[in-house]
Amino acid sequence: MGAGHAALLVLADGRFPAGGHAHSGGAEAAVKAGRVTDAASLEDFCRGRLHTAGLSAAALAAAAAAGVDPLALDDAADARTPSPALRATARRLGRQMTRAARAAWPSPELDALAAARPRGAHQPVVLGLTARAAGLGPLDAAHAAAYEAVSGPATAVVRLLGLDPFDATAVLARLAPELDHVAERAAEAARRAVHEGPDALPACSAPLLDITAEQHAAWPVRLFAS
């Protein structure tokens, strides 16, 4: 819809200044616990994250891009995020993305969300509204959120384990068809949410991501913020 692919590349670029590079998406805790040790276990980790927290985030982003009330989506995101550490992370990242987005694609909708949630709305909601401001559609927003769900951990594990960046990128390439599938599911759920509200969105969750986020937040020294 609307804008072409270039705006999506700008938004999904790892260098987009929204602070995502400082977060491992739970990979740092998984490496410490010995659950991610190589490319194969990184792929299992990323696949699990993609189909749980990734799908939920992609659906929230797609729904925001589709014009569903962002404050209702922000409440839905709270209910889908039992971990207080992850709620705090999502809001911090949302605030950072809001700043970058308002500079890149000024929009009254982003201004209104920033005014209603001065401490930051959940990042996937901001991402979706940013996509909307950039003239992108719900499927684009879902792709950006789903990609972020796996690119964060893959990049972090290169630093945490000294994993070969070629191997980490190959993991992302192998996950690409599943990423497309997750984005399509998210966009389809967002279409339903336009009429039925946020309850129509998936609420997929990963127990270990929630539990270990609390542990990670309590570490005195860590490489990544989450």
Binding site: G26, A33, D44, F45, R47, G48, T52, L209
Partner: peptide, 10 residues
């Protein structure tokens, strides 16, 4: 997909 990996049940 991924239910038994390190993100979900490990």
């Amino acid at each position: 997909p991924g239910w038994d990996g390190g993100a979900v049940l490990g």
